[in-house]
Design a protein around this nucleic acid. Structure first.
Lengths: 400, 400
DNA sequence: CGAACATCTGTAAACGTTTACTCTTCCCCT
DNA sequence: AGGGGAAGAGTAAACGTTTACAGATGTTCG
């Protein structure tokens, strides 16, 4: 309770100088006798080093930050699950920042780098402003950005090809025979929102489908907004037979609305999400989702950051994680009488189980193929459908 | 990049002493001219205070810790969602620790209090050892424990009455006419595991049901373990007609296994979870769950901690959050032909929607009654079934 | 046996703040 | 006009470490 022993206290007790204490504590060469006395004094006093004082002198805090839009979105959780152990193994603690996608908050966090309480930062800005870019360039500690930044931005960067991801999903839906494919997006002024909007338009055009603005609707990246946006879309275009949603939360909202309106999924409307979070395997029906490799992105970001901390002035690096389509029952369920799921295997990433050969419940097995799950020993969704494994004849642990 | 300006740099630039700089920066009374010069020097130099140096002097880091077993369990997420804004409003940052329920890890975190990088800690130990108690007593910074600790432990404590929670659930299942009520628990050497085991035995006895050890099974608090434990239980006691699971993750595992074995939920086996996490509304069928008031517990813990930081030596306080039963379709679905859900309203907490008067889909409305959701403006499950609200004739925003 | 050297230890400065104390001004009042 | 005070600013110490440097002791070799 009082004020805790410092190296000075120990030095007195052991009858040596504070320098010797510090040396012993840091494992520098010392005479055995000195070491013994210091160690026993430290033990008797219950000494715990003051990390703040240490940081002041050493100019590092051994803390790293992770700034995301919303700690409630499981996509970030998936990243944290990967990031945490990597950083921890390297001796760092993780400080989380939930910014609510607020630019000011994000700038604040970046400014925090100057405060020296973190030695580096992984950030996922939903919007990238000029101010962001300025701060990236001026930042007094390494920053790794997950998500796209303008070409040439001098920052380590982990991205995914969401254009390709959208294409995979749209082609999958098209391959199922769907021709009125709607898109429920997040805000267009966000980086992913803009990218996915463009990708959707492009993918639809590439398939020769008519361009119908009524099929694209914008909400926000949350379940409730997704539900509302879907409701608007259904009203405007009652004949949609498929919905691609810009993330899984939106897709859950879409499922809510479809159920409420009595439309069957996937028979009447096939639904696909993006991010392939744990939510996808929990939803009913299990949700086809475009995996944007969140665990891989998290891990890559953590490694980039550590690497950068080791060599401050290497060239900025860009890591790209390929999207994969994970097919589940929300698009490929076979319980539509006389309408067997015609999964177009060619549009599915090679590492994904070919859903066209298995029955509806086993489609879920694809959920196991999220790779990079290996680090989290207690993965929540690791055994969600063991019957499925047998049916697929797949041990469910493919390489990424 | 170089070494950033300090108050010394500013002092030189402004032609004043470092003390004046410090005073200006801290808003202490200063002549307007001095203030002007300091401020403009600071601005020109892009000064950012070094929080580490400040901490060393002020002996506070403005960081608080939260130590939980597994960051992947949404029950903790629910707490964080409440804790974060409360602490943040008070000027603190949150540092998360995921301990994997490892006692050594937890002790390490407690020791971390001595390192002074956090000013206080909220901890949820699954096991409470003598060492824990010793550390609580000796801790150099305030600790708030969520979960039960032995009577008289000198620590602020937030708990829930899980005994009552188990009773609510068991009586609910009994009220539905179920007589072979199984229990899938977590490890018995954990605090909640032990408490829930005892509570289950007591509740079953109180209802006059025969004591059958085959009905209780132990796994761990994860989905995969829950699935395995459920499989064992079903093998030993094939005639179970209800399952209470010690948390929602276990319940999800149970649902997986029941689906695999072709048992209908709730017709063949009614399933209830505990914690009432977001998972409950995502599961299919939506999961009846005992709410242990996680958001409330999180918020209470945060407030206790702040309060304790303000007045260091007030008496330790204990806050108890009452459990409530949230009935959903996994126990009360009406699609069992000729077997209408006979919800025993008396066993349901008053604040819970009476499910016996509404049809199956509307039972989900109870999910809205989780109170304390108010702080998270973007609540994921806030609008999952708006049709339901109408049916219930309830705006869905009851007081706690 | 003394010099050169290796090995260990102590002294003191530094990290960037905050703050107690002292010093200077300047104003007001008697 | 001189003394008392208020108000502002400067000096220096302190927070608890790490570490450069110098000093002390003992060892080894010519």
């Amino acid at each position: 309770m009082s004020d805790g022993p410092t190296i000075t206290t120990i030095a007195q007790r052991a009858g040596v100088s504070i320098a010797s204490v510090s040396r012993v504590l840091n494992g520098l060469p010392t005479k055995a006798e000195t070491e013994r006395r210091v160690m026993s004094a430290a033990r008797e006093l219950g000494y715990v080093p003051n990390s703040v004082a240490r940081s002041l002198k050493s100019r590092r805090s051994n803390q790293l930050g992770f700034a995301m839009a919303d700690i409630g979105n499981p996509v970030y959780l998936a990243m944290i699950r990967e990031i945490q152990p990597v950083l921890r193994a390297a001796g760092y603690r993780l400080v989380l920042h939930s910014t609510n996608a607020d630019t000011d908050d994000e700038i604040d966090v970046l400014r925090g780098l100057g405060e020296r309480y973190i030695d580096g930062l992984i950030m996922i800005p939903l919007r990238v402003t000029g101010e962001h870019l300025k701060m990236f360039a001026a930042a007094r500690a390494p920053v790794v950005v997950i998500g796209s930044v303008p070409e040439g931005t001098p920052v380590d960067n982990v991205r995914t090809d969401s254009r390709e991801g959208v294409r995979l999903a749209v082609e999958h839906l098209h391959g199922l025979g769907r021709r009125r494919i709607g898109f429920v997006n997040g805000p267009l002024d966000t980086v992913p929102g803009a990218a996915r909007a463009a990708a959707y338009a492009e993918a639809v055009r590439a398939l020769g489908l008519p361009h119908d603005p009524a099929l694209a609707e914008v909400g926000d990246f949350y379940r409730a907004d997704g539900a509302r946006a879907t409701a608007r879309l259904l009203e405007r275009a009652p004949d949609v037979d498929a919905l691609l949603c810009a993330n899984d939360l939106i897709a859950l909202g879409a499922l809510d609305v479809l159920r409420r309106e009595g439309r069957r999924v996937p028979q009447d409307v096939a639904v696909a999400g993006m991010d392939d979070t744990d939510l996808a395997t929990l939803a009913w029906p299990p949700l086809t989702s475009v995996s944007l490799g969140s665990p891989e992105r998290g891990r890559a970001a953590a490694e980039l950051l550590l690497d950068r901390l080791a060599s401050r002035d290497r060239e900025p690096r860009v890591v790209t994680v390929e999207p994969r389509l994970v097919v589940r029952a929300s698009t490929a369920g076979d319980d539509a009488p006389g309408e067997p799921p015609a999964v177009d295997a060619s549009t599915v990433d090679a590492s994904t189980v070919d859903a066209s050969t298995v029955d509806a419940s086993t489609v879920d097995a694809a959920a196991r193929d999220t790779s990079a799950r290996d680090t989290s020993a207690r993965d929540v969704s690791a055994v969600d459908a063991s019957a499925v494994e047998e049916a697929v004849g797949d041990s469910g642990r493919e390489a990424p």
